[in-house]
Design a protein around this nucleic acid. Structure first.
Lengths: 339, 339
DNA sequence: GACTGGCACTCGAACTGTCTGAGTGCCAGG
DNA sequence: CCTGGCACTCAGACAGTTCGAGTGCCAGTC
């Protein structure tokens, strides 16, 4: 049904439209890409492609533009991810290497990604769930108020305030601290939950309410529900979307504010090395109907801690964008593995 | 030069223009506001106001719109800050009370401010500089790598990794920890710098390199240069700016990405209770020429830890916006004072 | 002297009609 | 199966026109 040349035509249409943002007609197409056939032939192919739903006309007597399905086919079959130049790779690497802590890594990544893709970048902070406990610290701030600090292998620090029912003895705090560290240090957070069961029982009954409070708070910090943090950058790139503001830009800006939505967008792209591309209506959010998401997982040891990606208009340059996202994810993973 | 009625006319023009976003003419003006005079009279007043530079015509035979100077006069002399309704106050209070830690307070504040002003909200995280040390913790992660955790009275937690030159004895760490806490706890960060001088000398020469490294890192954390964090929210409200995208929205979006610029914008509004309003060209950033900033300091004990505010089009509703900013700042200050 | 009604004038916005050309579909011929 | 040719469509650009909101000015009135 779709022979080689028709696919060539589709590829040419996508490339042209991405470059010009204008509907492309049969004549300009043969002019720009040397397809070796006449415009009339191309027209026939275009008619077929339109029949199949890969391209469409904004109005009669205008050129064609790709549909979501057209982009999908292009991404899946007609294009190869573009690898970055050595210079670009070097720039990425050196920019990320300057980071001082995890937050800084994330901030830099967002900035970098936004800059090289010229799209809106989204980076999810590494989740606790897959990392392990490096240290737990219990600090007495006032006799009744304690600060619980949890440091994970990814360098993330979670702090929680715990109010005790009664004054807490410094000795007890010390005991608890060492106890918790023996039990937890090195444990993955998923296993840590089970590691904590029974800890309270080893303390004298009088201290149990306090110990239980601490343990509960720790568990909360572990499960980390609803505190999936996300960094967003490059929103200014939205202005390059075109002019239909109300329809293209506003919903995207709104979505960017709703981190819950963003998490859902990135959500399933958990495998590093695998690029997830969601085009237009494929997105689980109707405001992003004219928008595509390119995402991938990242994390040390080829195991995804979190996801990063970009959001851009469906008519983006997929090969380059995908290449950039993949490259950045790789370098971040490497940085995380090193530290 | 400008008698009472002319000022009334200016006030009416500003209010009308803010409401409609359309140039206002003499007739509609007398229709909507009961000025008690005829359009012709108003026209004369308008001519005078234009002469003085408070209003201008976008083109001949159109109504007048306020200039930056007009807004300035309006804000300074012709309007009173609107106080919020009891219901609104209640909503603010209860929304902020739900916060669990400092970060959460800031996040909620941004959201709240964006929501009630329907503008872009900016909240600076409380600076370390004015707060005091609550606790310093030194944690051994590996024999050569230590984690330094600094907890301030505002609930902010700073962490730094310190690499030691040689393996560090656990006893030394304990000594240092207690030493640092005796010296620093309760000190304001500004004074903490001096409090730290001489500490290294009290340790045996062999340990000094290590102690010095720690102290230096702490000092870095105190001075906190270049790490003024800022939270931004409500960018979607930018879509209500009008349609001249390239000129109105893009530069603002760009500015929002540049936290350095935002800090400068908020920068001087250090006194709480005092609202700073910067209108159009008064802003120290040319991209914000069609934009006004309403900001104020906040912090417990009527002493400003940081600044918060909003960015919106010059034709905003100043009385309401200023009221909202002031109210939110007050409630945040209260929350911070309580915790 | 300050306000008002009246009047001529200006000029952007909106509407109309026309034209142009890019683009199409279709068909007959190579 | 490809191609050149042809008739057709239609958005966008352009020019001309009208409309009306709004202005400035002036003479008259309180």
């Amino acid at each position: 049904m779709l022979d080689e040349r028709k696919l060539d035509v589709l590829r040419a249409i996508v490339e042209d439209y991405v470059a010009t943002h204008e509907p492309v007609g049969s004549k300009t197409l043969v002019d720009r890409h040397n397809l070796g056939v006449s415009p009339a032939t191309v027209r026939n192919d275009m008619a077929a492609l339109e029949e199949e739903g890969y391209i469409t006309q904004p109005h009669t007597s205008a050129g064609r533009i790709p549909t979501d399905a057209g982009y999908r086919l292009f991404v899946d079959k007609l294009s190869t991810v573009k690898t970055l130049s050595a210079a670009e790779k070097k720039a990425i690497s050196s920019f990320l290497t300057g980071a001082v802590d995890l937050d800084d890594v994330v901030r830099r990544t967002v900035r970098l990604l936004a800059q090289i893709t010229r799209q809106v970048a989204i980076v999810q902070y590494p989740t606790l769930i897959r990392s392990s406990v490096r240290h737990v610290e219990v600090v007495t701030m006032t006799p009744r108020r304690l600060l619980l600090v949890l440091i994970t292998s990814t360098g993330r620090v979670e702090q929680r305030i715990v109010e005790a029912q009664a004054d807490v003895d410094e000795q007890l705090v010390a005991d608890l601290r060492s106890r918790l560290n023996t039990v937890l240090t090195g444990q993955r957070l998923t296993d840590a939950t089970t590691a904590l069961t029974g800890v309270a029982e080893t303390f004298p009954p009088a201290d149990r309410p306090f110990v239980t409070a601490i343990v509960t708070t720790l568990l909360e910090a572990f499960t980390d529900e609803g505190e999936q943090r996300i960094a967003v950058g490059g929103a200014a790139n939205l202005t390059r979307y075109g002019d239909d503001f109300e329809r293209n830009v506003k919903p995207v800006l709104e979505a960017l504010e709703e981190h819950v939505i963003l998490l859902k967008l990135l959500g399933e792209a958990t495998h590093p090395q695998t690029l997830t591309v969601r085009i237009g209506h494929e997105n689980p959010y109707e405001g992003l109907a004219t928008t595509s998401v390119v995402a991938t997982g990242y994390g040390p040891k080829s195991e995804a801690l979190a996801t990063l990606g970009i959001v851009g208009p469906t008519h983006m340059d997929y090969p380059s964008t995908m290449g950039a996202v993949r490259a950045v994810a790789r370098y971040v993973s490497q940085i995380l593995a090193d530290s």
